[in-house]
């Protein structure tokens, strides 16, 4: 198994400049996080808002540089603050954002949304762009008739499919999914999760899946990392983390997740009666 992504001790600080009367301060958003992801596997990163998981996503997708620490993609060390960022590298890592209602340009037709990455990355003629966009639309479960439509004509689940299609246009090896299903309804969420699983099988994709929904994580992840205030408090395979959570925060997280099985409902109703 080859390692697609390796992070060693990633740190990201943000400096808040001081005003006339206040001193500047430093926010430690990510405090030394290390992990590896193998090809074709899914790493899930779990945590509450403000724990640094989206900051980490920005570092992994090469949008923001890390303050310190090493990032290896396909075994190659990358430091975008030193100008390591090439077009080829950009192609390797793509991202799907949380909210499909704001991540698509409302004035761009779907065909152009999907063609844009090909325009930026190399000389693909218009006819081939069109063919590849059509093929990708079918892959994500949409049809050719959607090529000339605008984003507002689609439902949330369809838009998320388009966002996934756009991310896959350049055949990336690593896909960072920043809460891809948290804005979707339960039944649509199931469809998108199925799609992600199918695409992973077909293209041997590697996923970094960011989420706060543990039931989704348990379904999709191979490895799980739990973040709390910028630190990775728990990291292991899915079964390790779910069967034997070590850190108190992980246990709090499990306890807070609503359970939808008849036994826990029965227990709750009994408690209510007793009270």
């Amino acid at each position: 198994m080859s390692v697609v992504l390796e992070a060693k001790n990633i740190v990201r600080d943000y400096h808040v400049p001081g005003g006339l009367f206040s001193k500047g301060s430093t926010v430690h958003a990510v405090k030394g996080v290390s992990f590896t992801v193998e090809k074709g596997k899914t790493l899930a990163i779990v945590g509450e808002s403000g724990c640094g998981k989206s900051t980490l996503a920005r570092i992994l997708t090469l949008i923001d540089p890390a303050t310190s620490g090493d990032l290896f993609i396909q075994g190659k060390k990358v430091d975008i603050s030193k100008g390591d960022l090439t077009k080829d590298l950009r192609r390797e890592v793509q991202i799907v954002f949380q909210n499909p209602y704001s991540s698509l340009n409302p004035r761009q037709k779907i065909g152009d949304v999907l063609g844009a990455p090909l325009v930026i990355h190399g000389n693909v003629p218009a006819s081939e762009r069109r063919d590849r966009a059509m093929a990708m639309l079918k892959k994500v479960g949409l049809g050719e008739e959607h090529y000339n439509r605008y984003p507002h004509m689609f439902s949330g689940g369809q838009r998320q499919r388009i966002a996934i299609a756009r991310a896959l246009m350049l055949n990336p090896s690593l896909l960072v999914l920043d809460e891809p299903v948290s804005a979707l309804d339960l039944s649509v969420q199931a469809q998108v999760l199925n799609l992600l699983a199918d695409l992973q099988d077909e293209f041997n994709l590697t996923y970094v899946f960011i989420s706060h929904d543990l039931s989704v994580v348990r379904y999709i992840a191979d490895d799980v990392m739990v973040m709390y205030f910028g630190e990775a408090v728990e990291y292991g395979t899915r079964d390790e983390v779910f069967s034997d959570p070590k850190h108190p925060y992980t246990r709090t997280l499990f306890a807070a997740t609503p359970r939808a099985d008849p036994n826990s409902i029965r227990a709750r109703l009994a408690r209510k009666k007793a009270a």
Binding site: D185, L186, S215, T257, P258, R259, A260, D261, S264, I265, R268
Partner: peptide, 8 residues
């Protein structure tokens, strides 16, 4: 729309 919330 969350079945977990319903159950709880």
């Amino acid at each position: 729309h969350n079945m977990g919330v319903v159950a709880e």
